[in-house]
Design a binder for these strands. Structure first.
Lengths: 132, 132
DNA sequence: ATGGGTGCAAATCCTTTGCATCTGC
DNA sequence: GCAGATGCAAAGGATTTGCACCCAT
């Protein structure tokens, strides 16, 4: 399933994996350009799609109009700041009671394969700003 | 917080609330045009934003590049078909153990206000198609 | 009369695509 | 030599915005 990655794809994958934030395509592009100066934005988009398809990285969308990428592929959850839009990985493993998932599967008739919990709230930085 | 809605805004809100799917802006536009023929797409976008801001409706994004709206504002969860992209409300109330949420809040330092569980899987229709 | 809402069209932004070229095998 | 990858520029599509106009207050 996973094909061998060429140098551009390696550089893109590395950039996404090393990023602690969840970079957008153009952030990845900016980063990768230092390692591969000739690369074009279109290739970054193409490579990101391939990496998602092949399961190397995950795509995440929330309220802004850009698509973000996450090099962290194990199942995990996200916390989203409703004030600034920041998207953080939740660093603890939240395991849902299986009966809840079963109930949801039954209710929707879907064959569930994965899930993601999205937590909404105010991040520490925004909380500070709001207090002022 | 909620201001009085004018006739256009009422029509948009009604359209979103009555829809069982999760309509996009242009689907809302198409629907609303029958009740308010003169309305423009830009106004639909403007009104949808206002309605979201004022808490009348929710905005949902997932993998496609359009933004969808949900007239269902009580906390609830979504099931997303990984084959066709369909987005369904989960018709059962999934209550998470409070200690899980607390652990996540502690780990992220965020002041959590809400959450949404996103379930990924294959919807019944797509499951049928895949079997063939 | 006055401030906010509106429609239209143009602009904007992210993303995708066409295509000629280049690359590695 | 060939299939796939690439860069560039142009196209595409969803959303936003500028602006003159209209409406209700």
């Amino acid at each position: 399933m996973k094909t061998k990655l060429n140098a551009n794809a390696q550089a893109v994958l590395e950039s996404v994996r090393l990023s602690t934030s969840h970079p957008t395509a153009s952030e990845v592009y900016d980063t990768v350009k230092t390692a591969r100066p000739g690369i074009g934005l279109a290739s970054v988009y193409r490579i990101l799609h391939t990496l998602v398809q092949q399961g190397y990285i995950q795509e995440i969308r929330h309220s802004d109009d850009t698509c973000r990428y996450d090099g962290h592929i194990e199942r995990h959850d996200h916390a989203i700041c409703t004030a600034c839009g920041a998207l953080l990985d939740v660093p603890v493993n939240i395991t849902l009671p299986p009966d809840l998932l079963q109930a949801a599967a039954d209710a929707t008739g879907m064959d569930l394969s994965s899930h993601e919990l999205r937590l909404y709230g105010v991040c520490p930085r925004c909380a500070l700003v709001q207090q002022q």
